[in-house]
């Protein structure tokens, strides 16, 4: 019987990640179906992002793609992706990922039994709020919903805002009733979760990167024959390439759809305003420099000079 790979993720099937996972399953099931079968479980059907890695280590899930911030308990190095204003744009992220430093990070959790197979994009993050955010002082005293991440918490504290952790399913209502003032997310999430309908202002800050790492367990991966591993890696690379393409296109179309809806004003930062934000948030780099490693931050910065 073919080896079964359960691929568990938490988003819908029509999202870039969902489509990449399905593409991976299609390729594998078509071309190596007698050897390996991939079953995709979307929408947190099996596990949420917190528990999926534990289930993977127990051998009950073979592949998953949690967001990079979720790896904080396994390695501090991946926090480099959360640092604000480190990457100028998504191309810089691509160059960093392709660099030896970026590829090296795939192996950063091997000691905990997790092997990275590749990176999937969601996109660059924007800031949305109930008030226009043009300069860092505008965020002063506002409450922002964040994912669990020390770096992102520090990022909002750097502009004297209050980061709060809230379950994703209630974020819409909390924003709607103004119990929280704002949040940060990519264009595609702001669009699909309808945050733009309840947040009158979105600042096109591109201040951070939201992405995922496709991971598997070391035990499972090393148990596969060398040739199978190579073929799977190839299939995944194609699926990732496709998913990332979808993500890029989607960022553009979703941004346009939000602009067209007229429900929130998209604020462009002038160079001078942007510099203020960078200035205010840059101390966060220093704060996490020791945990992440200076060399990694250097490498990321070099990727900006493509």
């Amino acid at each position: 019987a073919p080896t079964v790979i359960k691929f568990s993720h938490v988003v819908a099937e029509n999202t870039p990640k969902g489509r990449a996972a399905n593409a991976f399953a299609d390729i594998v099931n078509t071309f190596m179906g007698d050897e390996v079968r991939v079953e995709v479980y979307p929408n947190s059907q099996l596990y949420n992002d917190n528990k999926v890695l534990e289930a993977m280590l127990l051998g009950d899930v073979q592949m998953a793609a949690p967001s990079l911030s979720k790896f904080e308990r396994y390695t501090k190095k991946l926090q480099v992706f959360d640092l604000p204003f480190l990457f100028r744009d998504i191309d810089a992220v691509d160059r960093f990922i392709a660099s030896p430093a970026g590829q090296g990070l795939l192996a950063s959790m091997e000691r905990k039994g997790i092997v990275g197979l590749g990176y999937l994009h969601n996109g660059m993050k924007q800031l949305s709020a109930s008030r226009p955010l043009r300069v860092p002082a505008d965020a002063n005293g506002l409450k922002f919903r964040i994912m669990s991440s020390d770096v992102i918490a520090a990022q909002f504290e750097a502009v004297r805002a209050t980061p709060l952790k809230k379950p994703f399913s209630e974020v819409f209502t909390l924003l709607q009733t103004k119990a929280i003032d704002g949040q940060e997310n990519t264009w595609s999430n702001i669009y699909s979760k309808k945050f733009y309908e309840v947040q009158p202002y979105i600042t096109e800050s591109n201040h951070g990167y939201l992405g995922y790492m496709v991971v598997t367990s070391k035990e499972f991966w090393n148990g596969l024959p060398e040739a199978t591993r190579a073929k799977l890696k190839k299939a995944l690379d194609i699926a990732i390439e496709y998913g990332n393409q979808v993500a890029r296109v989607k960022a553009g179309t979703d941004r346009a759809a939000i602009a067209r809806s007229g429900r929130s004003e998209i604020i462009q930062l002038t160079d001078e305003q942007r510099a203020q934000w960078v200035e205010a948030m840059k101390p966060v780099w220093k704060k996490f420099e020791r945990e992440i490693g200076e060399d990694l931050i250097e490498a990321a910065l070099r990727a900006n000079e493509g």
Binding site: V4, Y47, N48, N50, K51, E54, A55, L58, G59, D60, P167, S169, E170
Partner: peptide
């Protein structure tokens, strides 16, 4: 199923500790 007993314990704990609602 191929699932382990351990995953059942994990799932039960998830049911108890990951649903803010």
């Amino acid at each position: 199923s191929q699932d382990s007993l351990a995953s059942v314990a994990l799932k039960l704990f998830e049911a108890l500790s990951e649903h803010y609602t």
